[in-house]
Every structure is written in C-alpha cells, then in structure tokens.
Design a protein around this nucleic acid. Sequence first.
DNA 1: TCTGGGGTCCTAGGACCC
DNA 2: TCTGGGGTCCTAGGACCC
Length: 446
Amino acid sequence: MNSTSDDPSLDDAPILHVDLDAFFASVEMLDDPSLRARPLAVGGSGERGVVASVNYEARRYGVHSGMSSVVARRRCPDLLIVPGHFERYEAYSRDFHAVVNDLTPTYEPLGLDEVFADLRGLARLKVRPLTAARALRERVRDELHLECGVGLARNKLFAKLASRRAKPFIENGQVREGPGVVWVSPAHEAAWLEELPVRALWGVGPATESKLGQLGVRSVRDLRRIDEAALARYVGSSMAATLVGFSRGEDPRGVVVERAAKSLGHDQTFARSLTGADVVRAVGHHAGVVSRALRERRVVARTLSLLVRFDDLTSVTRSQTLSFGVDDTAAIATLGEALLESIPSRGAVRLLGLYASSFVAREDNEVQLRFAWPEGDAAPREDGRRHQIGLEALRDAVDEVRAKFGVRAVARASELGPEGVRVDRQRGDDPFGPRPGDDRGVVSGP
DNA sequence: TCTGGGGTCCTAGGACCC
DNA sequence: TCTGGGGTCCTAGGACCC
C-alpha cells in the first residue's frame, strides 16, 4: 500500500506527521530502566483514575490510554500504574521539537508528543521526504532514546493515518514492529479511505459516530454516498463540510506554525467529592495555579470560567468577562468564588475547573487601566497603585455576577445551618464583601 | 468502561449596535 | 413606533483532540 522503494517528490508528500510511541510511559522507562520489562501505565491509580499512556507490554493485555484504571487493572492484574512527571515530559517534548525544528521551522505541535510539518520549504535544499523522515526517526532514537512513527502524505488527513500505520501494533497478543515510516502515495489514497470506519477520521468521536450510525453511515465509503445537507442536519454544517471533504480525501487544513494559546486552566477530579467550605478552598487553590500560569505567560485574562461537575456527573459552567484583564491570585479567587456562588448546588462536587481566556498582553492591560484612571489623578506608576484600580473594577465585576444570578436565592452547603437555613459567612477581611450602606449585588432572593 | 487534565472548536441564543 | 438584516460580543453547553 505504501511505497518505500522510491522516494516521492515534495509535491506528492509535502506533509509529515510524527508521533512518539507511548510517550509518557517511554519517558518513565528511560528514567527507571527497571520498569522496562513490565506492563506499565502512567495515570491515576485510584477509583477515579484514568491511564494517560500505556507501554506496549501493557497493550498486549488490551490496556490502552483513556481507559479507567479500574478496568485497566482488571485486564492486566500485573499492571504498574505510576503518577505522571509532566516536567520531564515537557523537557523531552522541547528536545523533540528542537529535532523537528532542525528539519524545518514550519511545524505545528499537537500536544507534547505529536508534530505536523510542512516540508515544502525544503525544495531548494533538494530534500526528499522519505530520506528526511528516516533521518528524523534516527535522530529521535539516537538523541532522545525514544521511538516514533512517521507518516508522509499530501495532507494532514493522510499523514496522520500513515503515522499510525507506521507504529508497532499488537497481533495475537504479541507486539509487532511497524514499518516506522509510511508514505501514502496519491494513487493509493482512495484505497486507504475505502474500508476506514468513520470513527478513524479526525473529529469523529463517540457522539458523532452514533449520529452517523443513525444515517446508516459507518465507513468512509458510506459517507461518500450521503448528501451533505442531510448530513448537516445531524452533525451541523461545519462538521458536515469537513466530513464530506475527508471522504473525498480532501483536507484543507494547513500547518499552522505559531498558534497562540487562547485559554488556560486547571481542573481536578477529587478522589473523594468535596462539599461546603472545601469547595471554596479548592477554588482558591485553582486560582493560584491559573494566576501563576497567566503570569508565566505574561498575559492577563478578561474572561474567567468555572466548571463544576457534581456526583451525578452533570456539569455546570459559569463565566464572566471583564472590561480589563486579571492575573493576580486574590482577584481570580474572588471572581471564582462569586461564580461558584451563582451555581445551584446539586450535591457533592466531583470535579472543579477554573479557566482563563480572552488574553490581553500585560502591557496593554496597563494602558487600559490608565484610561480608566480618574481625571486629574496621576497615572499609576508602581504596582500597588495599579492593583487598587483593578480591585475597584473587580468589586464591580463581582457585584455584577451576584446581580446577574441572584446570589441570595442560592446557598452553598457550607452556608447552610443544620436546618438548611443560610448562615452568612463572616469575612471581615473581604475587600469585596458587602460594605456598609452598599447593597449592590443583592437584587433578588427570599 | 461509567472516564483525567491539558486544550480547541462549534452551536445557539441573547444583547447591542448600525 | 414597529420592523428587519447584519455584525460582534458574551454565555452555556457539548464534542473532540492528545
């Protein structure tokens, strides 16, 4: 199916996809060679844990990433599940990107362990795609001591399918070596797609697969026969157009080199669900994580979102966009708490997430704040002064949240007395709490 | 199989402006 | 005063990726 005998031209194989094999698990085995011979997974080992990465020894037992740890251990009782060391993975990822960058600067990372690259810029260097792909694999192996699969094709769709085919695979419970590098020649594209289940296409998950099933669409061949308008009624017009394109082997997505982050956040599923004041404390902890990440990136966020997943697995989100950006822990914690207050409780909290978006460069935010500076007053110079303006505006924002959602109509478990009567939390040091003669924010409720 | 934590994108409705 | 269309921003939820 793939041709490895002659090296295609850049026109026939401009897009390369590299995917590191069992990345997290492989790094753990490099850091501790005694783990090599045994089935290993990286992830949470508790009741609510999920395995994020699995070595090939464990895959022989049918364990794969994304699987709950309970199920994984059922399939493989000898499975060793170790916690992740993400700084290590990030360090390896940086080295990986550096190796790709030596091949071409036109590359696009996906997560820590995958990269798309556009090789067209190498035309003048007379680089041949297969030669480049093999050299890339060699360098990843020699310098990082990691294995990877490389795919080459006309577009991202086929390059990704190809790299998957390049990797080791399990056959009859045994690990088989893959070819390492696979090129999908344009002449063979149709054959590649023909038998492929729709689930193998990028963007088709369980929900879309099920919707397509209702239309009788299971394979890419089925997809080609279906009317796009009919498809759109089930999966939306955007997804319909994408899928129809894929079914014809068309993928307009380019390699995007500098993809600026649009949001960041932190969420955590608790080993034991939280109630009452513990939830508020968790918001404070998340605020610390998020604000540090914002400062590290030298941006401030105008939008904050809070996600709460209850024990019944229902999720609720609340978000608030400010006219200015924030990056300090206290401000984010206060806003997060206001958002939390606005969510009607449905019992114990299983997962809490806090996310920041609508980034503004820190310097630009300062300019914005100066605009808001009262007439005739001096422009803020030192940080403390600037901070105060933020607090004033922030207080308004918190009031806005409370006004919008009618906070008094809802009480957290922590604020309920034994009879379910709301007890006001005493927070004399809270700069955002009610002030004397100030009843803003209390617009509804019993 | 009742499921993590980092993200991205899409959809649909409402508010607001021209 | 009522009406419509288009554009943009915000919000909530959902699906998907690694």
